[in-house]
Amino acid sequence: MTTNPAFELVVRRHGTSVLRMCTALLGPGPDAQDAWSETFLAALRAYPSLAAGANIEAWLITIARHKAIDILRANHPVPMDELPDSVVLPELTGHLEMLDSLASLSELQRKVIGYHYLLGFPYADIPAFLGGNPASLRRAAADGIKAMRGQHHEAEEES
């Protein structure tokens, strides 16, 4: 492949999953729609310089995550001590710290958690993207969540 696909095909292939991710992070409605638009506009600006054959879905998820965080920061300047103690991702999606700590996980952990919790894929579907098997991916997600929980407690103890 000498160039990446036409951007229209990128929107067609990934538009729905990016919107699902934005909606999971920001709730349905204008915030998720803004995050989607900002994501694809930023992606369009940068697209000509994206390396040919790059993992476009992973690239879009990274951009969407940043756009979602921008909107969360603008809307909810949540103080640290208001974060809940128990960590269950879908309930945490309104909280920046969890999104930030996702970035500290291994690539596999981050992807499994993102695909399962943010994009809504059942574990059985994820090996198609990442290899492995549903049981090993479920373990990777559990390890990742445990690691995030650890970080969260550390942060609390330090404060």
Partner: peptide, 18 residues
């Protein structure tokens, strides 16, 4: 049409939109 969009991306520019 998708193949044609691919050729346009390659020969003109990747920023192809409806």
């Amino acid at each position: 049409f998708d193949a044609v969009l691919g050729t346009l991306a390659q020969k003109v520019g990747v920023r192809v939109l409806h």
